[in-house]
Amino acid sequence: MSSPKFPKIPVSFHGELKKRIAEYFKTKGKAQTGNFRLYLKAGILVTLLLATYVHLVFFTPAAVWAIAESILMGGLIASIGFNVMHDGAHGSFSKYKWVNNMASNIANFLGASQHMWKTKHNVIHHTYTNIHGVDDDIEARPFLRLCAEQEHLKIHKYQHVYFPAAYSLLYIWWIFVTDYKKYFTLRIGDTPLRKMTLKEHLLFWFYKLAHITIFVAIPIYMVGFVPWVIGFFTMALVAGFVLSIVFQLAHTVEHTHFPLPDDATGKMEDEWAIHQLKTTANFATRNKVVSWLVGGLNFQVEHHLFPKISHVHYPAISKIIKKACQEYGVQYIEYRRVRTAVASHVSFLRQMGQTGDHSHPFAH
């Protein structure tokens, strides 16, 4: 399908939001990018990951400690993805492009191609959020049915039960399967990728080789194949689950919408900013521990409206956005706690798994 188009509104809600947010940063005299607190957090997370890796691979702790450290590594990989790579990829980690590139490139060494990610996430997901056939992030077939337009299979009746197992496989599937599928097909779902330059081809293979060397070859050489398999899969399954659940709580819950373009014109009903508010939810925004660990991605509404603003500013700008939504009568979807967001997501999965012709009540 061709890319949907959003209507152009002369006096748009998005324009009003941008004006208010710009005024906030001007009044406070702050840069929209990261600050010392973010850089300190990035340093802590990366140092912990390196220290855990070195201890596991070169000092070989007892089995129980090794498994515990592998679990920790999985959590650290996810947290570095949220806090460092994510802001870097959006250009919001620092005002310096080279620092953003460095922050973003950490993910390459962790196995996730940034070339593919930036197109899949920054361009496709952030523009066409929750639009079936375009947003690849809601494409998890055959294991999961995440919107009413997707084919219903008998297995989906139980997806609200087995979803943790499916989510745990994300990281392994991402680094060993989907990156290569995108590379060789030059497509992300139905969306074609632009032709890669020679430099991009070389970097893709350099980083993939670097990842395999660091996380496969060296550990097998140092500790043996079986300990590596146990440690690597423990780490990868934890990382996969954490990465998956944070995304799902933001977009696939009971109150988020799954709008479709008009069949005749290919146009969406709402302007882009309204579309983002209808398809995105916040969760546990008052929980500072959650906010610290997930890089502010519990403030997904703010992130989707202003992806080039660092997550360290989301608590402040959320008040401005929420007030504007109240004034304009726009729904602002938010779950107060992690558990209520998880419960809503499980309920949504159960709903999507019931029958083939079942429609999500908030889908259109």
Rank of each mutant, 00 (worst) to 15 (best):
K322P: 05
G266R: 09
F25P: 05
H311Y: 10
K157F: 12
S2P: 13
C147N: 15
N287P: 10
F362L: 06
A341R: 03
A89D: 08
S104I: 00
T191E: 11
T129S: 14
T234N: 02
K182I: 11
G111I: 01
I9A: 05
P259A: 07
I138Y: 08
Y335F: 11
R339K: 13
L305N: 11
G88F: 07
A343C: 02
M268W: 09
F13W: 12
I77A: 09
I77V: 14
K26I: 00
H313D: 09
P361F: 04
N83Y: 00
D190W: 03
M268P: 08
L72S: 03
A107Y: 13
K308E: 13
S94M: 07
Y314C: 07
F348I: 00
I172K: 01
L198A: 14
A140E: 12
I274M: 12
I220E: 05
E69P: 00
H86V: 05
L45Q: 14
E23N: 14
H121I: 01
V342G: 10
Q159A: 03
I131N: 07
K208N: 10
C147D: 15
L76R: 06
I333L: 15
W272C: 07
L169A: 12
A316H: 11
A89E: 09
N35D: 14
I245E: 03
L110W: 00
P4R: 08
E302H: 04
Y207S: 06
F306I: 05
N100R: 05
A148F: 08
Y128Q: 06
K28N: 13
V57N: 05
K208Q: 15
D262T: 04
Y221P: 01
L110I: 01
T60W: 10
V294R: 04
R286A: 10
T256M: 04
F306Y: 04
Y24C: 03
I320Q: 09
V161R: 08
K41H: 14
